[in-house]
Amino acid sequence: MKYDTSSSCCTSLTVWRKSLVFSCYGFTVFDSNGNLVYRVDNYRGDRTEDIVLMDARGKPLLTLHRKKRRFVKNWVVFEGDAEERDGKPKKPIYCGRKHVNLLLQRNPHDVLAHVFRGSDSHPSSEKGYGLEIQGCYERRTCQVVDDESGEVVAEIKKKDACIQGISYGLDVFLLIVRPGFNPAFAMSLVLLLDQMFT
């Protein structure tokens, strides 16, 4: 996965499930100082093939692409936009798959999704570790766990209002990113969950 070693402390982002562009589906993401850092502006609604995570200036950082395979939907993520370069298709940096419990067994960690390197939807010894997303996205309480180390690398939490009696609801929440984990990559996981569970 993409790691960023430039920071030694957690990054706290406020995610607003709304685009700043009128009549657009999307997300607006602010840092702890209130500066715009990421945005998603989707003119076609929330169920398109491609969702692009951009920086504040509109530069594409990551593109989430939905693929259908038989009964299960997979999502692949590309760096930048998903367009071909020099006639060659770009290779995805990761693949996400919704956790499916065919035997209806108890889900001990409330596993929501699995994330793997590249375009494969199954881990292998050559591909190395992946990520497991646990919790409940509908309640905005999720943890992203590194399969190799077992450490939590990012969390989604409800945002508490500073003034008593005011609730932000579910459209405004926090994304806490641990040191060493790329915040843009973490935000793409939020987009992945939003596609899976809304």
Results as ranks from 00 to 15, higher is better:
Tyr3Cys: 10
Asp4Ile: 05
Asp4Val: 05
Thr5Tyr: 10
Thr5Cys: 07
Thr5Phe: 14
Ser7Pro: 00
Ser7His: 11
Ser8Trp: 03
Ser8Pro: 00
Cys9Glu: 14
Cys9Val: 12
Cys10Met: 10
Cys10Tyr: 01
Thr11Trp: 01
Thr11Val: 14
Ser12Met: 11
Ser12Gln: 14
Ser12Tyr: 09
Ser12Thr: 15
Leu13Cys: 05
Leu13Phe: 04
Leu13Pro: 04
Leu13Ile: 05
Leu13Gly: 05
Trp16Ser: 08
Arg17Tyr: 05
Arg17Phe: 03
Arg17Gln: 15
Lys18Asn: 10
Lys18Asp: 09
Lys18Cys: 06
Ser19Tyr: 04
Ser19Met: 06
Ser19Glu: 04
Ser19Ile: 04
Ser19Val: 04
Leu20Cys: 05
Leu20Lys: 13
Phe22Gln: 13
Ser23Asp: 15
Ser23Thr: 12
Ser23Pro: 00
Ser23Leu: 13
Tyr25Thr: 14
Tyr25Arg: 09
Tyr25Glu: 12
Gly26Pro: 13
Gly26His: 12
Gly26Arg: 06
Gly26Met: 07
Phe27Ser: 08
Thr28Asn: 07
Thr28Asp: 01
Val29Cys: 11
Phe30Tyr: 15
Phe30Arg: 01
Phe30Glu: 05
Asp31Lys: 09
Ser32Leu: 04
Asn33Phe: 08
Asn33Trp: 03
Asn33Ser: 12
Gly34Gln: 06
Asn35Asp: 13
Asn35Gln: 14
Leu36Ser: 01
Leu36Arg: 09
Leu36Pro: 01
Val37Glu: 01
Tyr38Ser: 05
Tyr38His: 11
Tyr38Asp: 04
Tyr38Leu: 02
Arg39Met: 13
Arg39Phe: 01
Arg39Ala: 03
Val40Ser: 03
Asp41Lys: 03
Asp41Val: 03
Asn42Pro: 00
Asn42Arg: 10
Tyr43Leu: 10
Tyr43His: 08
Tyr43Glu: 10
Tyr43Thr: 05
Tyr43Val: 04
Arg44Leu: 13
Gly45Met: 01
Gly45Ala: 02
Gly45Thr: 03
Gly45Arg: 02
Thr48Gly: 14
Glu49Ser: 09
Asp50Glu: 13
Asp50His: 13
Asp50Trp: 03
Ile51Trp: 03
Ile51Met: 11
Val52Cys: 09
Val52His: 02
